[in-house]
């Protein structure tokens, strides 16, 4: 682990592609992270458009998958926010698909996991936080501030409760982003660490013992697919829950 190029974190290195670009003094060079974001966007669009191109009344497999994803997010939004949530559907759907595809593409060999970068997940979570807060203020005006006053709490507890509520509200983007980031990093580090065991173990014990970490990797890849989908689901459902708080304020 001492040598930097053998570190399990090497896979998360951002590498520039092409020349340096800058905008207003900030570096905006194209890199592998940006490449995989755009690949995800293109893949989502192609996947959805090709799946729905026949517009069949009785869907084939692909169309059924597209419709399943649509219904899945739509139902999630409806169950958590209700009918007022319909106009936020494209936004929530974009979040879900973006996180899902970035997670899944991260599992391809030699790919780059966009969501394993804290800055990306934090930017997404901050976007959710800002938009949700803005929706709360637009719908309820300054009355939205009463969200931080817990209902039914005795008055003498309020000086304690209100700061706790405010902190727990502002910690939301942190927990949302760190959850996704940590899940992705942990899974990928685990895969690389296990992968680094294959050769030493195989050389140490008559080649056959190298099978053990390979089997473990195989199992963990399956788990990682589950985690990739699950984390996209969790990110989206928490977005829906926060949205419900802002829309209905039923704390």
């Amino acid at each position: 682990m001492a040598a930097e190029h053998h570190s399990p974190l090497e896979q998360f290195r951002v590498e520039h592609i092409g020349g340096n670009l800058s905008l207003g003094g900030y570096d905006i060079s194209f890199n592998n992270s940006a490449l995989w974001m755009l690949i995800a966007v293109a893949a989502i669009t192609v996947f959805m458009l090709v799946g729905i191109r026949k517009q069949a009344v009785v869907p084939g497999r692909w169309q059924a998958l597209v419709e399943f994803l649509y219904d899945f997010v739509a139902n999630m939004l409806k169950e958590n926010v209700g009918n007022e949530g319909r106009k936020y559907f494209p936004w929530v759907f974009s979040i879900f698909m973006f996180v899902l595809f970035c997670n899944l593409f991260g599992l391809l060999p030699n790919s780059f996991t966009v969501t394993s970068h804290i800055i990306v997940t934090f930017a997404l979570a901050l976007m959710v936080f800002i938009i949700v807060t803005a929706i709360g203020f637009i719908r309820h005006g300054l009355h939205f501030l009463s969200f931080f006053v817990p209902k039914g709490a005795p008055a003498w507890l309020l000086p304690l409760m209100i700061p706790i509520e405010i902190i727990s509200y502002f910690i939301r983007p942190m927990s949302l982003s760190v959850r996704l980031f940590a899940n992705m990093v942990a899974g990928h580090v685990m895969l690389v660490v296990l992968g680094s065991f294959v050769l030493p173990l195989g050389l140490a014990g008559a080649y056959i013992s190298g099978i053990v970490p390979v089997a473990a990797i195989t199992a963990i890849i399956g788990l990682e697919f589950l985690i990739a989908c699950l984390q996209a689901y969790v990110f989206t459902i928490l977005t829906c829950i926060y949205l419900n708080d802002a829309v209905h304020m039923n704390h």
Binding site: V14, D27, I28, S94
Partner: peptide, 19 residues
Amino acid sequence: SPQLFWLAIAFILLYLLMS
């Protein structure tokens, strides 16, 4: 900064395509 810039572009593009 590059990741934020490209994330913004990618996500806005995705949102527009989806919606």
